[in-house]
Structures are given as structure tokens and as C-alpha cells.
């Protein structure tokens, strides 16, 4: 089976300057959930914006292909891209308050998507919008559809955004930190909703998050990014069980989890140092300055992605057993 989305050698750079995404390749199959994880500045959000061709003016796509169901999104016309966005690719952003128009009733915002992409009449689109609100489990949807966004709670707003994203039953949903602004209890509900809708529609999901717990709970496969590159990829169960890149294992151990043993010193396992600034990334393996396993050879060029039991890992020692 061919992939729904195939990103091949994607490069994004600051206009005439620092490289943000460097030779990034991955694919998403129909119906699967791929999580992209990493810390701030690793390029995970830029990846999603590049796929949707919504890069801010300061950033430019400088190479690579983004094949979506036969078309190369890197080169399609803006008109065609507009048609794909919303209809075949749905989007959910971190902050529902900023992705909703504060001056429009929420029902109107969902109906708008249907009128543009499905050519529904005003009345039919509104009826469908109310159905969708019901579908994302908003109580009393007919009345809620008349509300303005600021009258809803954060969780309900994100449900509205989800309703708009699934309105045209897209093949792919890109969710960029969809629950980061929400409370844990609401986060659990929203993730569960997203998961069940996905099963029902059969969409593929790219879930962008910094939270490994969210990844473990929702994704099939995971891609770990560091400093604009993919450092590890594979099935969630395998990677969480046996991470082969030191950054992945470091992240896993730094995440608070009361069911695991405490470190010998301190409270949490820490990764020393900090995420490099754009344009100040180390040569060779960018993680090298923070890595306990680093040897001089790590500086000699970007480590290749090696096949491991868990998937792929960009570490010279990936095939030599568990990462330290």
C-alpha cells in the first residue's frame, strides 16, 4: 500500500540564513496516527506548516517533496492548495481561541467550511454544523451553535475546532499541540474524542506534541525530532520500550512518571545542557554536546539513520543495544 503522505528530503530555511529543517523524510499511511515529538525549536511545528504550505514569510521551503495522494504539495498552485486545506487536510491548532474567529458564531464557522468545500446551501450547512457539534459531544448543540467562541470553555472551543476540521471527512488531520492549552482532565477527553472520530472517519493523523505521555496514549508510530532533524522513528510501543537514540531515552526518562524508579541523585533524570539555538547547532550529530555517549567520531558528519529493532535511529551506537 502506498503512503497517503510522503515527505521526502524536506528542507526549510530562514530566508537566506539558518537551516530550520534539514533533509526530513517520513511518511504517513492511511488511517494511522504518527506523532511528531520534540522540544521547542526542534522544527516539529514548522514541519506541519510546511506540509500545509502555511510557512510564515520569514521561512522558505528550499527543497524536498511533499507527496499527498499523488500531488506534490511543495509545488501545487495556491488555488489547489486552498482546496486541499480544509477539505482533504484538516487542521487543529494549539490555541482554539486564536484559530476561531471571535466575531462569528461557532456554528457559522463550521458551516463556512461546508459551504466553501462541499457547496452546501446556507441552511443545509447550518444543519450539518449542528450535527457536527453533536458529533464532537457538545451538549445542546443547536443552542451552542449560536454562541460566540468566548462564551465557550477551552475544551469546548477545541471541540468546535475539531468539528470544523472533520467537517469534510478529511484524509489527513494535522493536530499541532491540540491539548497543550487544556487541563489534564479535559485533555484526556479531547484526545479520546479525536481517537474515536479518527477510527470512524478513517483519517490519518499527524499529532504534534512535546508530551510523551500523549504520544504513548494515542499514536501508532512516533518520530522524534531534534534540532531540525529526525533522530528516531518507529512504532510507539517499540520505541518506548527500547529507545535507541540517547535523546529519545533521555526525554523518556525526564518525563515525570511516579511509576518508575527515582534517579540516584535528584528527583528527575535530566538531560544536561540545552536545546541549541537556531544557527548554533553543532556539526555532525547536533545532540553531541549533551550526550553522555558522544565520541570524537560523532562530530564527523550527520549520523545516518540506522535500522534498529525498534525502527530507525540516527546514532552511531543505535545497533549496539539500549541507549544509555
Amino acid at each position: 500500500m502506498t503512503a497517503l503522505l510522503e515527505v521526502d528530503g524536506l528542507r526549510v530555511a530562514v530566508n537566506g540564513g539558518a537551516v530550520v529543517l534539514d533533509d526530513l523524510s517520513f511518511s504517513v499511511a492511511r488511517g494511522e496516527t504518527l506523532a511528531i515529538v520534540g522540544e521547542s525549536g526542534c522544527g516539529k511545528s514548522v514541519t506541519s506548516l510546511a506540509i500545509m504550505r502555511l510557512l510564515p514569510p520569514a521561512l522558505r521551503l528550499t527543497g524536498g517533496a511533499i507527496r499527498f495522494d499523488g500531488a506534490d504539495l511543495a509545488t501545487v498552485s495556491p488555488t489547489r492548495m486552498r482546496d486541499l486545506r480544509g477539505r482533504r487536510i484538516g487542521m487543529i491548532f494549539q490555541e482554539p481561541m486564536t484559530s476561531l474567529n471571535p466575531g462569528l458564531r461557532v456554528g457559522e464557522q463550521i458551516a463556512e467550511v461546508l459551504r466553501i468545500h462541499e457547496g452546501l446551501s446556507r441552511a443545509a450547512a447550518w444543519r450539518r454544523a449542528v450535527e457536527l457539534l453533536d458529533h464532537v459531544r457538545i451538549p445542546d448543540p443547536a443552542r451552542r451553535a449560536m454562541e460566540y467562541p468566548h462564551r465557550l470553555s477551552g475544551g469546548q472551543r477545541q471541540r468546535v475546532v475539531i468539528a470544523a476540521a472533520i467537517a469534510c471527512r478529511p484524509d489527513l488531520i494535522i493536530a499541532d499541540e491540540p491539548t497543550t492549552a487544556l487541563d489534564v482532565t479535559v485533555q484526556a477527553q479531547v484526545l479520546e474524542l479525536l481517537k474515536s472520530l479518527q477510527r470512524e472517519i478513517g483519517s490519518a493523523v499527524i499529532l504534534i506534541t512535546h508530551n510523551l505521555g500523549v504520544v504513548a496514549q494515542t499514536a501508532d508510530r512516533v518520530m522524534v525530532m531534534y534540532a531540525g532533524r529526525k533522530v528516531e522513528e518507529g512504532a510507539v510501543a517499540a520505541i518506548f520500550d527500547d529507545p535507541r537514540h540517547p535523546y529519545t531515552s533521555g526525554l523518556l526518562r525526564a518525563t515525570p512518571d511516579p511509576t518508575r524508579p527515582r534517579p540516584a541523585r535528584g528527583v528527575l533524570h535530566e538531560i544536561p545542557g540545552m536545546v541549541p539555538r537556531l544557527g548554533a547547532r553543532a556539526s555532525g550529530c547536533a545532540f553531541r554536546p549533551r550526550c553522555a555517549r558522544a565520541v570524537p567520531r560523532c562530530a564527523e558528519g550527520v549520523p545516518p539513520l540506522l535500522a534498529t529493532n525498534s525502527g530507525l535511529a540516527a546514532c552511531l551506537f543505535a545497533q549496539e543495544g539500549a541507549a544509555a
Binding site: 489534564v184 485533555q187 484526556a188 496514549q217 518506548f240 520500550d241 518525563t255 511509576t259
Partner: peptide, 13 residues
């Protein structure tokens, strides 16, 4: 119960 635990063997949904 709502805390997403970073372990696959503890999936809640």
C-alpha cells in the same frame, strides 16, 4: 486517571 503516562502498556483509551 487523566494523566497521560508515557508507557504504552498503560493506555487508557
Amino acid at each position: 486517571e487523566a494523566i497521560p503516562i508515557p508507557r504504552v502498556d498503560q493506555r487508557s483509551f
